Structures are given as structure tokens and as C-alpha cells.
Simulated assay, not measured.
Amino acid sequence: MARTATQARESGGSALLSIGQVLARLNPEFPDLSPSKLRFLEERQLVTPARTESGYRKFSSADLDRLRFVLTMQRDHYLPLKVIRGYLDDMDAGRQPSLPGGATPAASMLSTEKRRSRDELIREAGATVMLFNDAISASLILPAELFGEDALQVLRSLVELQKSGIEPRHLRGFRAAAERELGLIESALIPVARRKDASSRAKAAELAREIAGQLEVVRGSIIRSALSKL
């Protein structure tokens, strides 16, 4: 049942945010987030903002953390919304669930992802400036002002691969393979993408993440099968 803005304010103890204020806070981390995407997440019961007497949505700080978690799980781990919702439902019920692949420990469910400068990223990964630059040149890490956990994991992996003589230039094909997979996903989305309404765009984005997750499962299986023959 939807909360009123007064109930949310009394339970949360902090000022409530409008859709515009939520976007202002989250867009630096999630540039694709839009009002239609927020409404789509509400329709899927991932977040339940309060409502004013006039029907306007108002978000608490807990709602903001919940949204950041959902968006991070989609972006960094390609988890379908139904999986994320099941995880959140278990957490709300007081259980201690785990996400597929151990994506995020339950204890840190709604933590804010740390964003790092280039120098911080290089230092935390134990990399060199040359390795970082090579990773950018090979399109293994995309240029940015700030970098998240995904970039850190990639750079750490490149540090370890370098110890075995595998350099970023050897992995240029990874970007080409990713672009081929993107072509498959775009083809699969054509029936949904033809509908131009906001709800359909949000559904297309969610379906794209689900397909990407399934492709990741197939790719992992192929690699494991090949390794077993070595």
C-alpha cells in the first residue's frame, strides 16, 4: 500500500525528494536514469515512494539507497529485476539471501558504490599508469572522470594477466566480441523497440540486461568446457 508523504516523513525523519531531485542525485552515476525508468521500477515494486495529497511521488533517503542498489545490480552485474526484487523481498522479511554469483554480500546491500579518480583507480588496483593507458587504448576500460567497481575489477585482472604475459593489446578482440553480442541483443529488442512509449523503452532496457546475463552464462560455460580439455 502506498505511503502518504506525511507517513514517510515521520518514519524517515528527513526531507523527502521529488523525482527531479532524485534524478539530480543519481544521474551522475546513472546517466540513463529518467522519470519513465523511475516509474517503471515503481511498477515492478522495486521501490515504493510516498505520495502527496495531490498524487506527486516523494522519495525518502531509504528509497534513494534502494534505487542506487537496484541500478548498480543492473549495470554492474546484469541481474534481472525479478532477481533483484526477490533479493530485496527476502531482505525486507529479515532473511539473509545471496545474489547469483555472490554479486553483493547481504551485509552491504545498500552501500553506495565508491567512485574513484584515475590516480585512485591505478593505486587501488596496484597497476601502472602504462597498464591503465593500454587498457583505455584497447577499450577494456572506457575513459571517464570517475571509475566504479567494474573498472577496478578489470584493472586488477589486467595486473594479474600481465604477470602471465597477457597484455591489454592481446585482448582487443574482447571489445569486438562485446559489440557482436550487442548486435544480437539489439536484434532481439526490435519488436519492443518499435513501440516508442516510455514504458516500452524501460521494458526494452530491462530485457537487454536479461539477455546480456544469459549470454554471460553461455560464454562462461563454453570457456569452462574448453578448459576441461586442456
Rank of each mutant, 00 (worst) to 15 (best):
L41Q: 07
L41H: 07
E42C: 02
E42L: 02
E42A: 04
E42Y: 07
E43K: 10
E43C: 00
R44K: 14
R44Q: 15
R44W: 08
V47E: 04
T48I: 00
P49I: 05
A50L: 08
T52M: 10
T52D: 08
E53T: 13
S54G: 14
S54N: 11
G55K: 10
G55F: 09
Y56R: 13
Y56H: 15
R57A: 09
K58C: 07
K58Q: 15
S61Y: 12
A62V: 14
D63S: 09
D63V: 08
D63M: 06
L64K: 10
L64H: 13
R66N: 05
L67E: 05
R68G: 05
R68M: 01
R68A: 13
F69P: 01
F69V: 07
F69E: 13
V70K: 00
V70F: 00
V70G: 00
V70R: 00
L71V: 09
T72G: 10
T72F: 03
T72H: 10
M73T: 08
Q74K: 09
Q74S: 04
R75S: 12
R75I: 00
D76N: 13
H77P: 01
Y78R: 14
Y78I: 10
Y78K: 13
Y78S: 14
Y78D: 13
L79R: 01
P80W: 09
P80S: 11
P80G: 11
P80Y: 12
L81D: 05
L81S: 06
L81E: 07
V83C: 07
I84K: 08
I84R: 06
R85Y: 08
R85W: 06
G86A: 06
G86C: 00
Y87T: 05
L88P: 01
L88V: 15
M91Y: 10
M91W: 12
M91S: 01
D92H: 07
D92C: 00
A93H: 11
G94E: 03
R95W: 06
P97L: 06
P97I: 08
P97A: 06
S98Y: 00
S98E: 12
S98Q: 09
P100K: 01
G101M: 12
G101L: 12
G101A: 12
G101R: 11
G102N: 12
G102V: 10
G102S: 08
A103K: 01
A103E: 11
A103H: 04
A103R: 02
T104R: 15
P105V: 02
P105E: 08
P105L: 02
P105Q: 05
P105F: 03
P105Y: 04
A106H: 11
A107G: 15
A107V: 11
A107I: 06
A107C: 01
L110V: 13
L110H: 15
S111G: 13
T112D: 14
T112C: 04
T112M: 10
E113Q: 15
E113D: 12
K114Q: 15
K114L: 11
R115D: 02
R115H: 11
R116H: 09
R116M: 14
S117R: 05
R118W: 03
D119Y: 02
D119G: 05
I122K: 01
I122M: 04
